[in-house]
Amino acid sequence: MLAKVVRSWGAIGVYALFLGWAAFTLYMDYTAPGRIAPELSQALERDGKANVDVDLPFTPSAFHVQALQQFGTIRRMRGQTILMRGVTKAQVQALARDVFWIDRLRLSVPASQIQEI
């Protein structure tokens, strides 16, 4: 009886969903460090908090801004980048691991250091 239940289509569907979720989680854990720029990691080790530029592969909508607000304070948006203020190391790691649509997390450059071309 138990063998029949384990081999049923419903059980196979549950197994497939679990394997898909596990594969996605492993992928996100494996690729997360590559989304964090080295200078951001250094600044977080040194200062504990940093202003972060979150680069996206698209122009963010209200949904994306609200999703990122779980991880810190949104300063402003500029094109395909959302600027966040006072983000901790744990928050940066969570962003890189949990939000699959982020391309890159960079250390935000203060406006006084931006050079016009």
Score class of each variant (00 low, 15 high):
residue 7 R to H: 09
residue 10 G to R: 02
residue 11 A to L: 02
residue 12 I to T: 11
residue 15 Y to R: 08
residue 18 F to L: 15
residue 19 L to S: 12
residue 20 G to M: 10
residue 21 W to Q: 06
residue 21 W to R: 04
residue 23 A to S: 14
residue 24 F to T: 07
residue 24 F to M: 11
residue 25 T to H: 04
residue 25 T to G: 02
residue 25 T to F: 02
residue 26 L to A: 14
residue 26 L to G: 13
residue 28 M to L: 14
residue 28 M to W: 03
residue 29 D to S: 07
residue 29 D to E: 13
residue 30 Y to H: 15
residue 30 Y to L: 15
residue 32 A to D: 01
residue 33 P to A: 14
residue 33 P to K: 02
residue 35 R to W: 06
residue 40 L to M: 05
residue 42 Q to F: 09
residue 43 A to W: 03
residue 45 E to Q: 11
residue 47 D to A: 10
residue 48 G to L: 12
residue 49 K to I: 10
residue 49 K to V: 13
residue 50 A to E: 00
residue 50 A to T: 01
residue 51 N to M: 07
residue 51 N to E: 08
residue 51 N to C: 07
residue 52 V to N: 05
residue 53 D to Y: 03
residue 54 V to M: 03
residue 56 L to W: 08
residue 57 P to V: 03
residue 57 P to I: 01
residue 58 F to P: 03
residue 60 P to V: 03
residue 61 S to T: 13
residue 61 S to V: 07
residue 61 S to N: 09
residue 62 A to T: 14
residue 63 F to L: 11
residue 63 F to Q: 08
residue 66 Q to C: 05
residue 67 A to Y: 07
residue 67 A to F: 05
residue 67 A to C: 02
residue 68 L to I: 08
residue 69 Q to T: 11
residue 70 Q to N: 15
residue 70 Q to R: 15
residue 71 F to W: 06
residue 75 R to Y: 12
residue 77 M to F: 02
